[in-house]
Amino acid sequence: MQAYRTLTRRELARYFLTSTGYIIIAAVTFLIGFSFVVLLLKLQQDSTLMPVTELFYITPFFWLILLLAPPVITMRLFALEKFSGTFETLMTTPVSDLQVVLAKFTAALIFYVVMWLPLLGCVLIVRHYTSDPAALDAGALGTTFLGIVLLGCLFISLGCCASALTRSQGVAAMLSLMLSVSLFLLSFLAKELPGTSSWQAQALGFFSLVEQMHDFARGIIDTRPMVLYLSLTAFFLFLTLRAVESRRWK
């Protein structure tokens, strides 16, 4: 437990000791700011029944952040350690492979959540200037963040896995970006298939991240995507663990 905590703290500190963390947060804040401008323009036009979180979700910047940030956050985790050789000094201390994988995942997830906090600021600004308190429902805000965190778990575990497979940060980032974009595009593939009753369409329907996240932003909690995201996260973390252990049998 001590090793896990020490490692998590160290990994988290690393984002802030180098410029990477600040650059990521700045870029994300910039994109959230863009979304915020779009959102305000929409609010100025006709009246709408959509909650603010949904309005925010349907701006194109949302998925841009969700897809681009995790690869950049995770690319360094294992690849850099392997490249610089510190992986060897790490694995010869009495820590288990599982502790290392979980610590790195936790640190990346915490950073990811911190990175989204400017969104909360934007929402609070809207709340401050609207006369109607119903415009901002705490429940909808909660489910939006739940959705963001769950999708974050999935993409970050995927990024961990990509990073554990290679020594190059660039390759790790491209690999995880490619995989997460493919996963994201499955939603559109499901829509394109003729006849929603065919089994292919139904199977793909389970992976329609766009629809699922839309529900979260609307304030709907569906357990099916939750189970999907959490089990996929566990699966990718398991693969990461295998990749870390691979030095033993390669």
């Binding site: 690393r14 000791l17 180098t18 610089s84 050789g85 510190t86 060897e88 000094t89 010869t92 201390t93 009495p94």
Partner: peptide, 18 residues
């Protein structure tokens, strides 16, 4: 065993940002 040893690999990798 790992508790009982101190190991310095070749090229001495360190965390340069600390």
């Amino acid at each position: 065993v790992r508790r009982r040893i101190g190991y310095m690999p070749e090229n001495n990798p360190l965390h340069l940002d600390m």
